[in-house]
């Protein structure tokens, strides 16, 4: 074991790169899958919360919606309002008492997904509310049902608006999966802790861990920024004419003027 800082870092990299990488892989897997499932949960909850109800609807539909919304509010409040680390222990050991033994991977997906879902539910609701009422009216006026309006007009725009928040959640999840080490999930933090513990050396292994977390989060924040750009589409458009004098009114003031394609 070398005595200097850099030497030790190289030593740990050379001898433990495999377990560190495997830990990082687990972290990424849990974060990515759970964020995806969490988003789906969030969309479902957000959509249910924004279904319009009026007095003319049949009582059965109103009753079902009323009960569903009540349960969803409880879900959101409970999972937003308690630490994920505590939830992990509570759910994992709670289900163990009930005789259900989850694999560590399934447990991780479950806990992180329902957490993300609770946050995303509010984000999606906000995203839907952020879309101008005129978009909904325009869709209704051509005969779309509420479902069609949501699917083709409101949700695509809401998704674009909440993409930065989805990115936030993904990055938070990459970092926060480390709390799953309390139920024995061997992700990056657990791997680092084991290495540090076996050598009684802390600063160097955690330097590596810091760097690895940072690399993962920066990579995903760039990736999401790129996705936002892609969803916005090109800043300019092609005129569907061969008439070169067709550039008339309305072209001087569009937002992408002067920028490259």
């Amino acid at each position: 074991m070398p005595k200097d800082y850099l030497g030790r870092i190289l030593y740990f990299l050379a001898n433990h790169w495999e377990s560190l990488l495997r830990g990082a892989g687990t972290t990424l897997l849990i974060a990515a899958v759970s964020t995806l499932i969490g988003c789906i949960i969030g969309f479902i909850v957000g959509i249910i919360q924004t279904i319009p109800v009026n007095k003319k609807d049949n009582p059965f539909k109103r009753f079902v919606l009323f009960v569903a919304r009540g349960l969803l509010v409880i879900y959101v409040e409970v999972f937003r309002g308690t630490p994920m680390m505590v939830q992990a222990v509570f759910i994992y050991y709670g289900l163990l008492y009930a005789g259900i033994k989850m694999t560590w991977l399934f447990a991780s997906f479950l806990i992180v997904s329902i957490n993300t879902g609770a946050y995303m539910a509010e984000t999606v609701r906000g995203g839907i509310l952020s879309i101008d009422e005129g978009q909904t009216e325009g869709a209704k006026a051509i005969g779309m049902t509420h479902f069609q309006t949501m699917l083709y007009v409101v949700l695509p725009q809401a998704l674009r608006n909440i993409l930065p928040q989805i990115g936030n959640n993904l990055i938070i999840n990459i970092k926060d999966t480390c709390v799953l080490s309390v139920i024995g999930v061997v992700e990056l933090f657990f791997a680092s802790k084991s290495i540090a513990g076996s050598y009684y050396v802390y600063f160097e292994p955690y330097t590596i861990t810091m760097a690895m977390y940072l690399i993962m989060t920066v990579f995903f924040s760039r990736l999401l920024r790129w996705m936002e750009k892609r969803m916005d589409g090109p800043q300019s458009y092609d005129l569907a004419t061969t008439d070169t004098l067709a550039h008339t009114s309305g072209l001087y003031n569009f937002p992408g003027k002067g920028r490259k394609k």
Binding site: E137, G138, A141, I142, G143, V153, P156, Q157, Y237
Partner: peptide, 21 residues
């Protein structure tokens, strides 16, 4: 909705779908 499909409407604020060409 089926009735609205037969009665068109044009709004003061256009209400074009922002996510479509």
């Amino acid at each position: 909705p089926a009735y609205r499909a037969k009665v068109g409407m044009v709004f003061q604020s256009f209400n074009l779908f922002a996510n479509m060409t």
